Amino acid sequence: MIRTAVFYLTLVFSTIFCGALAALAALLGGGRVWMDRANRGWARSVLAAAGVRVAVRGLEHLHPSGIQIIAANHQSYFDIWVLIAGLPASVRFIAKRELANIPMLSVGMRSAGHVLIDRDRARSARETLREAGVRMRAEQLTLVVFPEGTRSRDGQLGRFLRGSFALALETGAPLVPAAIDGGRRVYPPGAKRVRPGPITVRLGPAIRCDGAEPADRGTAMRRTRAAIEAMLAEDGRGGGASG
C-alpha cells in the first residue's frame, strides 16, 4: 500500500509541476528541448515511484532524424511513460480524446504537446492528424500511435484500427513497430494498486511508407501487426521482461 500511495502522490505532483513547466516553455517559446525535459521528468518520476525498470531493445531501428511513427501494442497506462523515458527521441503521442476524462493524465499530455483526437468525428480526426504530421516534420518529432485504439483487457494483441496508419501513409514517415511487455503485470486495467517490476520495449525494423498509396493501408497494418506479434512471442520465450 505504501508503494501505491507514493505512486499516486508522485503522479499528482509530478503532473502538476511538469505540466506547468511544459506550459511555461510553450509560452516563452522554449521549444522542443524544454518540452522533452518536461516529458522525461514526468515519465521518469512516475516510473521511479512505481518501482518500474525499463529495458529497451532495438534502438538501432530508430530513424536518426527523429521523424518517424512508432506503432505499439497497448497493455497499460505505463506504456506512455515507458516510451517517453526509454526512447532517445522527442516522443509525442496520438491518443484518443477520452483521455481528457482522466484529469491528471490529460493535463500532463496536453501541456507537454501530445495530440488527442476525436475518433468519433472523422473530419476532425483527419484534420488533427494533418496538423500532427506538420508538427512532426517541423519539430523533428517521433509520434506514437496505439493501433488497438485502447488498452488490451487480457494482455492479448487486439484488433488493429486501419485509421491508425493514415498518418504514416500521408506523410511517408518510417513506421517502426514496437512491442511493449510487462505493463499489464505492473498495473492491469481497472487496478488500484501498482506492483513494481520490469517493462520491456522491443523495436523492430522500420516499415517504409514513402510512396505508399491509401490502398496500401491494409498491407502496412498487417506487416506491423505481424512484427509486433513476433516480438511479443520472442519476449515470451525469453521469460518476459528483464531490467
Rank of each mutant, 00 (worst) to 15 (best):
residue 165 F to K: 09
residue 11 L to P: 00
residue 191 A to M: 00
residue 16 I to K: 04
residue 208 R to I: 01
residue 174 P to Q: 02
residue 214 P to C: 06
residue 205 P to L: 08
residue 59 L to H: 06
residue 108 G to A: 15
residue 237 R to M: 11
residue 8 Y to H: 09
residue 109 M to I: 05
residue 186 V to A: 04
residue 196 P to H: 04
residue 122 A to V: 04
residue 33 V to L: 14
residue 201 V to T: 05
residue 232 L to N: 11
residue 216 D to N: 04
residue 137 R to I: 03
residue 146 F to S: 07
residue 215 A to E: 15
residue 125 A to R: 00
residue 93 F to M: 15
residue 79 D to R: 07
residue 27 L to F: 14
residue 212 A to T: 08
residue 139 E to V: 06
residue 33 V to W: 12
residue 38 A to Q: 03
residue 222 R to M: 13
residue 183 G to M: 08
residue 52 V to D: 10
residue 52 V to W: 07
residue 40 R to N: 08
residue 32 R to F: 01
residue 145 V to E: 05
residue 122 A to W: 10
residue 73 N to E: 06
residue 138 A to V: 11
residue 95 A to I: 14
residue 144 V to Q: 01
residue 90 S to K: 05
residue 32 R to P: 02
residue 232 L to C: 10
residue 43 A to W: 00
residue 189 P to K: 04
residue 91 V to A: 06
residue 74 H to Q: 03
residue 47 L to N: 00
residue 72 A to H: 01
residue 33 V to P: 10
residue 92 R to Y: 03
residue 42 W to H: 08
residue 84 I to W: 09
residue 230 A to G: 14
residue 165 F to E: 01
residue 119 R to M: 04
residue 186 V to K: 00
residue 139 E to P: 08
residue 86 G to P: 04
residue 158 G to P: 11
residue 239 G to E: 15
residue 25 A to N: 01
residue 16 I to D: 12
residue 44 R to P: 02
residue 157 L to G: 11
residue 72 A to V: 03
residue 192 K to N: 07
residue 36 D to S: 13
residue 201 V to P: 03
residue 117 I to S: 07
residue 227 A to P: 02
residue 200 T to L: 15
